[in-house]
Write a protein that binds this DNA or RNA. Sequence first.
DNA 1: CGCTGGATTGACTCGGATCAAGTCGAGTGG
DNA 2: CCACTCGACTTGATCCGAGTCAATCCAGCG
Lengths: 240, 240
Amino acid sequence: MANRFIDKLLGFSKLTSEEVAALSGLTLHARNVSPRTDLIREGDRPGPVFVMLEGWACRYKILPSGTRQVLGFMMPGDCCDLHIGLLAEMDHSIQVITPALVATIGRREMDEVMDKHRGIARAMYLGQLIDEATMRAWITSMGRRSSIERVAHLMCELYLRARNIGLVDGEELELPLSQLLLADSLGMTPVHLNRVLKVLRDSGSMNISRGTLHIKNARQLIQIAGFDENYLHRRLRASG
Amino acid sequence: MANRFIDKLLGFSKLTSEEVAALSGLTLHARNVSPRTDLIREGDRPGPVFVMLEGWACRYKILPSGTRQVLGFMMPGDCCDLHIGLLAEMDHSIQVITPALVATIGRREMDEVMDKHRGIARAMYLGQLIDEATMRAWITSMGRRSSIERVAHLMCELYLRARNIGLVDGEELELPLSQLLLADSLGMTPVHLNRVLKVLRDSGSMNISRGTLHIKNARQLIQIAGFDENYLHRRLRASG
DNA sequence: CGCTGGATTGACTCGGATCAAGTCGAGTGG
DNA sequence: CCACTCGACTTGATCCGAGTCAATCCAGCG
């Protein structure tokens, strides 16, 4: 079966066949995880690195008031922070959204592989940089974009990220995210998100129905979002 | 003169005297930079790592509409992303706010030092993890906190970060950030920020005047903010 | 002394939250 | 096969936090 983690890293850096083999070895032991399972919770002592081989997850925080803020979505191929093991305590939780296949890589193992295989290290660092750039884009969205721009921007992000790992079929993408979850990620109420989705649908730019995102008019959607894909850093430096 | 970069890293990890010497060498060549100077701009090809030895800076993005979102503040001791050189293009800009002393460390140099000195590598990775956790806290603030909570939260963050590097004098901190800048970092208008600051002042929890932040009632401020300092990760893992 | 860039305050507007009813669709059990 | 249930989605009515527009105010400074 395809290993989306390897596919993703191959998109960042050329890897030797030994490096690919090493990655295969790292992700050999994976387990099935059901929806709504927390992989790790805020306050927990960080353990191994989690790698999503199949399925979706999200990072989130719960506030004292009980409201939730989703901090990012993890799709197949994504993994959590590399050096997370250095911390005493998680500052957020990670929850699986769909049935998922998750591999875990111990800190020592990871360190050894990265020391030995510079291509893997390079690809992992790039992944991390993109995650950070994505967080900056989220801060920007929350701070300075209207709700319709924010929704459009997130859809552009998810669509492009999914396309980069071959998850997109034409203009359609399976998006197993409830409106409640999306609202919690966009800093708005489910009610208002619903209305915004209706506006986007009526404008003919996109539509979400039965768990599938349809891009109807990409140009228009990008224009609404003010989306600039440069932060996803598809163009990378040529030299290692 | 004190090297705040070294001081900060010493707070993260024990360093041998050779490691301290290596860091001294890395930051030997620093230059003075005037306020409002961009160290690097969105779209630029990333260069060396920037280290703030003295003075403040901020990361920011400009949107198509012309509005600005500040993504984070850099105070003395802080530096930008370690592996930034891997990217083809910056996704945000960095601007100096006060007269500053900035060192630059070439990518090769940095790599060599980190390979050789594991303590430095560890400290740098911790710094990076804290920066990421701070971004997550910002996303949470923007998405789910009211404006007064958001302001209080940012002040708690800046106060604690400053205290960790010895920038705080009693309950006072020199905070060279204009209300316009703060507003752009909090996703609100300067007018509204001004009103919120008045509320905080009248409530007796804090006050900003003539570039100085006075914490009047820390307990109350923390309570308003719903602040949990765990994300700044002062308690770290004992083992290297 | 007047200029300039921040800070402050007031009056009014509006985007998005809140509260409250539905509606729809996939299971489940009689 | 149909009634029941439960979770997710929709829609309407109303309210309020924060934005907008527009005056000052004030301190530092050439």
